[in-house]
Design a protein around this nucleic acid. Structure first.
Lengths: 173, 173
DNA sequence: AGGCTTGGCTTGCGATATGAAAGTCAGGCC
DNA sequence: GGCCTGACTTTCATATCGCAAGCCAAGCCT
């Protein structure tokens, strides 16, 4: 709705990224989508976000090309799920950098251990999000798993992006 | 002012980071501080942000411990500058991840070339923010330079954080 | 067939945040 | 003394947030 395109075309890529990613709910939705959630009420339950805000953010993310709305069958009826596009999946390094920053520079009273990001190939924890000191090479998305002890000891794989990559253009008519 | 502490103590580090960093102006202020700007009117000029918003964001960043307000002498009078703390400087990987994402997934009409992040030790461009494929090792902050052709062909070093790291705690009285 | 339930939104509305513009204030400079 | 500059603070109209309620389509239950 607010097609305030003024910030979308600045020369600095950080500025352009901040226009899309510089929002609390947007980041949390991407985090949740990255762990495999796809449905409206799952996002709502995970995030505790108000319905209208969630709807607005999902629409913004679809318009920005980070999510895509794909129909699927639920029992006998057609529903929609929000899947990461390649661009949305590519926000993973941002989330990993934030996870690291949050782990180092913020505190929680939660007694379960910290989040860990593992290289599934070797099982070692990653210090930086993208490079495995143990293997000595860059880590791909599908070699990355998260362990979030406050919800489960099980590792979680990163969701695979939807193959189709539509929705890159601007949403304004 | 809005000491809405509810989001500050969630178990997920991404959530805690998003509470601090999940804001457009906050990210842009950090970007600008990272390139060495320290003063109110320099931030204003760089970002085109309204005075009251800038003041609020700077205060939030000081309260969150990413910036520190240090007095300095300007001619014969005392002024204040906003310097990055170690925690603020440590947001660099987030900015680099965002720069990469922005470069790959957004478009600009600006004709000057893309932003480049170089490893000053070897002069090579960094593909991922933190790991130099050319040198085969992790890149530190002070080995990182930015080239932003839309403002100058000259490389810019990352600002050094202030040595004192006060201001980590909550700001609410 | 009629009603219940579930998922996915939309609407209303008061509270809060945004942002342009103007005002304030301290201290140096002319 | 008056002007200027930097760094805010205040004002005010607008926009956004987020709770709560309403809505609707489609299956399911009886």
């Amino acid at each position: 709705m607010t097609a305030e395109a003024a910030y979308r075309d600045v020369p600095c890529p950080i500025g352009r990224a901040a226009d899309v990613l510089g929002d609390r709910w947007t980041l949390l939705i991407l985090r949740t989508a990255t762990t495999g959630e796809t449905r409206f009420d799952r996002f709502r339950a995970e995030l505790g976000v108000a319905d209208n805000i969630l709807a607005a953010r999902l629409a913004k993310l679809v318009a920005a090309g980070l999510l895509t709305k794909v129909p699927y069958r639920d029992g006998g009826r057609t529903r929609h799920e929000y899947r990461l596009t390649p661009a949305g999946a590519d926000a993973l390094p941002v989330l990993l950098a934030m996870a690291r920053w949050g782990e180092r520079h913020t505190r929680t009273t939660d007694p379960s251990g910290p989040m860990r990001v593992l290289h599934s190939v070797c099982g070692q924890a990653l210090a930086s999000g993208e490079y495995c000191a143990h293997c000595g090479r860059l880590v791909t998305r599908d070699e990355t798993v998260w362990i979030r002890p406050w919800r489960s000891p099980e590792p979680v794989a990163m969701a695979q992006p939807a193959v189709d990559a539509q929705g890159v253009a601007d949403g304004a008519a």
